[in-house]
Each structure stands twice: as structure tokens, then as C-alpha cells.
């Protein structure tokens, strides 16, 4: 009796996560999707964003988001994989135990702190070295690349560790060096985890807001080079939500809807790839 009641209460509680997800989906879409159709798909995916005058084209922001995300991956993937491989295959247990939490600590540092470091160090450095405003695709890519490192390292490291030791022994027995084993066997065996890590890192990069606002410059145009200022979907939402009203606010939720759809697709792909049940 007591057990039955407890079970039912727990069942109800257990649905809190999925219920939250449904509520989020419902409200973001309910607020945003109607405006997309009102504006027309053609206009919505154009480059003219002048929300106070009824122009709701988000193309430049989508391109902006994709550019900084791609940039983040260019920085994050090699460093992330290098760390994961070094930790999993080339270091002693003591080094693993020390370095893993240190790298995970990177994930704990608030994104505003990354943005701040970008403002005070990276942006001036880019301005002085390469010219331009400094607030740029390049700055955002580097900072986002650092921010997604822990995601890539953690998941890749775990999937490398999950490769059975018999594989390594078999490979060494054939006379392969450690590096050959990593390159030809382990990376292949652990690829689903590595891919999942990269996809989740991609999700983090495309969804990151505060750090990007602080260092990307936020100019409303499609950037012509890495040194140009750029504005993403997320920064538009955060910059304008404070004062937006009516259709303008709806347009920000429309940006949110697009972002949300991208993220959910990435998540589903990542969950699929790892085959997690």
C-alpha cells in the first residue's frame, strides 16, 4: 500500500524532465513559429533584420552561428582529441587522475568569464596582430573552441577507455607501436563516442550566448573574413529580448525555435550514435 503510493508519486516525478522538455518546446514554438509563417519563409530566411520596421530576416545570424560553430570545431576537435588520446593512451594513471578533473574544470568556468578573457586578452591581441576591430569570428571561434574542449575530451576519453584491452594487446603482439595502435585501431573502435562528443560540443558552441556576445562584435551582416564582426542567433536573442515587444519579441522566439530545432536534432543524432538506451 505504502509502496504503491510511493511508486506512483515517483513515477509522476520521473516525468518531470520530459515534461519540462515538452513545456519548453511548446512555449518556444507557440511564441515563435506563427511569426515565421506570418513573415513568410522566404523573408524569414533573408538577410534583412530590422525588427522595429517589420523586417525579420535571420539569414545573416544563421550564417554567423554556423561560422563561429565551425571555427570552434576547427579549434576544439584537434585539441580535444589530442587531450583524450594523450590521457587515455599515453599517460600513467596518476596523470590521468590529475589531468581529467583539471580539464573538466574548464567546463565549470562560467561562460561570462570566457567572454571576459576574450575582451581583455584575445580581442586586443587580434586587433594588434591582424588588424580589424578584434571583435570577430576568429575571437569567437577560439573562445568557443576552448569552451567545447571538455565535452569532446570527456566523451572521447571515456569511449577510448571502453575499448577492450585485448584489442591493444592483439595489436602490440603484431608489433605495432602505441601510436600505430591508436591511429589504426583505437580511434576506429572508439569512433562512435568520439563523434558523439564532437556533436555535443557542436551543440554547446551553437547554443553559447554570453561569451559570444562579449567578443563577436555583433554587427548585423554576413562576415567577409575571419576578422570581421559577426552576430549569432543566440546573441540576437539575448541582446534584444530585454526591450522587444509584439512581433519583435515573437521574432526572437522564432530565432529560438530555429536554434532549438538544430539542438534537438544534434542531440538525437548524438544519442543515436552512442546507442545509449
Amino acid at each position: 500500500m505504502k509502496d504503491k503510493i510511493a511508486e506512483n508519486i515517483l513515477l509522476l516525478i520521473a516525468f518531470s524532465a520530459i515534461l519540462s522538455l515538452l513545456l519548453i518546446t511548446f512555449f518556444i514554438f507557440q511564441q515563435g513559429i506563427p511569426l515565421i509563417f506570418k513573415t513568410g519563409l522566404h523573408n524569414f530566411f533573408s538577410i534583412s533584420w530590422s525588427p522595429t520596421k517589420g523586417g525579420f530576416g535571420i539569414l545573416s545570424m544563421i550564417i554567423g552561428s554556423l561560422m563561429v560553430t565551425a571555427g570552434a570545431l576547427v579549434v576544439g576537435i584537434p585539441f580535444g582529441l589530442a587531450c583524450a588520446v594523450f590521457l587515455a593512451e599515453f599517460s600513467s594513471p596518476t596523470i590521468q587522475k590529475t589531468l581529467k578533473p583539471i580539464i573538466e574544470l574548464l567546463a565549470g568556468i562560467p561562460s561570462v568569464v570566457y567572454g571576459f578573457i576574450g575582451i581583455v586578452i584575445l580581442v586586443p591581441f587580434i586587433r594588434e596582430t591582424f588588424g580589424g576591430p578584434g571583435f570577430s569570428v576568429l575571437a569567437a571561434s577560439i573562445i568557443l573552441g576552448i569552451m567545447i574542449l571538455p565535452t569532446i575530451v570527456s566523451i572521447s576519453y571515456d569511449s577510448l577507455l571502453a575499448v577492450p584491452n585485448t584489442y591493444r594487446e592483439g595489436s602490440y603482439a603484431l608489433g605495432a607501436t602505441k601510436w600505430q595502435t591508436v591511429r589504426m585501431l583505437l580511434l576506429h573502435a572508439a569512433r562512435s563516442g568520439i563523434v558523439a562528443g564532437i556533436i555535443l560540443g557542436m551543440g554547446r558552441a551553437i547554443g553559447e550566448t554570453m561569451a559570444v556576445i562579449m567578443i563577436a562584435g555583433n554587427a548585423l551582416k554576413i562576415p567577409g573574413s575571419l576578422l570581421d564582426s559577426v552576430r549569432t542567433l543566440t546573441s540576437t536573442i539575448a541582446l534584444e529580448l530585454g526591450y522587444a515587444a509584439g512581433d519583435h519579441r515573437a521574432a526572437l522566439f522564432a530565432c529560438g525555435s530555429i536554434l532549438f530545432i538544430i539542438i534537438i536534432i544534434l542531440n538525437i543524432v548524438a544519442i543515436r550514435v552512442t546507442g545509449r538506451k
Binding site: 513515477l11 520521473a14 516525468f15 524532465a17 520530459i18 515534461l19 519540462s20 522538455l21 513545456l23 519548453i24 512555449f27 518556444i28 511564441q31 561562460s111 555535443l200 551543440g203 554547446r204 551553437i206 547554443g207 553559447e208 550566448t209 543566440t234 536573442i237 539575448a238 529580448l241 526572437l252 522566439f253 529560438g256 536554434l259 532549438f260 539542438i263 534537438i264 544534434l266 542531440n267 538525437i268 548524438a270 544519442i271 545509449r276 538506451k277
Partner: peptide, 28 residues
């Protein structure tokens, strides 16, 4: 099925970026 649904919910929620939570919290 129940387990899969709940797990899926938690996994997806974990990947939602904070600005989406901001939008949701603001409107809801």
C-alpha cells in the same frame, strides 16, 4: 518504454542551451 522516454527527456534537456532556458523561463 517508460525508461527510454525518461532517459531521452533527461539527455535532451541536458543539451538545451541556456539561452533557450532563458526564453522559456521568461515566457512561462
Amino acid at each position: 518504454l517508460i525508461r527510454r522516454i525518461i532517459s531521452f527527456g533527461a539527455d535532451c534537456l541536458a543539451g538545451v542551451p541556456s539561452i533557450i532556458f532563458g526564453l522559456f523561463g521568461f515566457i512561462f
